[in-house]
Amino acid sequence: MAVSKQSYDAIVIGVSAGGLVALTEILPKFDKDMTLPVMIVQHQHHDSDDFLVRYFDHLCRHSVREVEDKMPVESGTIYFAPANYHLLVEPDKTLSLSTEARVNYSRPSIDVLFESAADAYTDRLVGIILTGANSDGTHGAARIKKLGGLIIVQDPETAEAQAMPMSVIKHVQVDHILPLNTIGDFINRLNQEGYSF
């Protein structure tokens, strides 16, 4: 049987409780030559400042930016949703912000990002669900999977809060369940080699 290769155009990450530790384990590991843009929803208090952007811009080899409305997606850039705004990917691969109602009690909502990104990138999207204490991201992960994308879930045994990864594992046919300390290296290999199946 021939091995097929799939390459990807973007990564979306959803994370909630325990996110600072989890993202600190992953984002600084990305190789300098990684070209995939990364869009992140981290649940945070509605009046949080831009601490996450400043913190990770200092730690990472890549530019880290807080999303502004109508911002184009650029390769090798890490984007964070601002507090109290949903983050969406438009069909033309620009990023938009919305103050529509909370989804899963959250704004920004992981589902909103994942579902819009799935529609924009179809089978060329990687979705990653990390630690979190609710089920946000489950519907979005299902949408990514339905359109042919790749789903990676943090092994709940390595998560500060297990509910979010466990919900996705329960309801979605995930591709990989990985310990936290291996996800960064996996993404580097994916960026360099694509994905064999």
Rank of each mutant, 00 (worst) to 15 (best):
D9R: 14
R102V: 09
A142N: 06
P91D: 11
Q162N: 06
T182Y: 09
V89I: 12
N181Q: 13
L36G: 05
G19E: 05
L150T: 01
G19H: 08
G132C: 00
T182M: 04
N104K: 12
Y85G: 05
H43V: 05
S109G: 12
A120N: 02
T122M: 13
L59C: 11
T122F: 05
Y79I: 12
Q192T: 10
S7A: 10
P37Q: 08
I177Y: 07
V126M: 01
V67M: 00
N104Y: 13
V168S: 08
S167C: 03
K93Y: 11
R65Y: 06
K5W: 10
T35F: 12
E100I: 02
G194L: 01
H139T: 05
K29C: 02
G14F: 08
Q6Y: 02
E90G: 02
N84W: 08
K70T: 10
V126P: 03
P72H: 10
A161G: 07
S96C: 13
T138V: 13
A118Q: 06
E66N: 10
S4F: 13
M166Q: 15
E90A: 13
D119I: 06
R65A: 08
R54H: 12
A101I: 01
N134K: 05
Y85I: 00
V73N: 03
G132E: 00
G137N: 00
E68W: 02
V112D: 03
E100V: 10
A141C: 14
S16A: 14
G184P: 07
H58D: 14
M1I: 10
R65C: 11
E100N: 14
V112E: 04
E66R: 12
V103D: 03
L36P: 02
V53M: 14
G76K: 05
I183Y: 07
E74V: 08
A22M: 00
G184F: 00
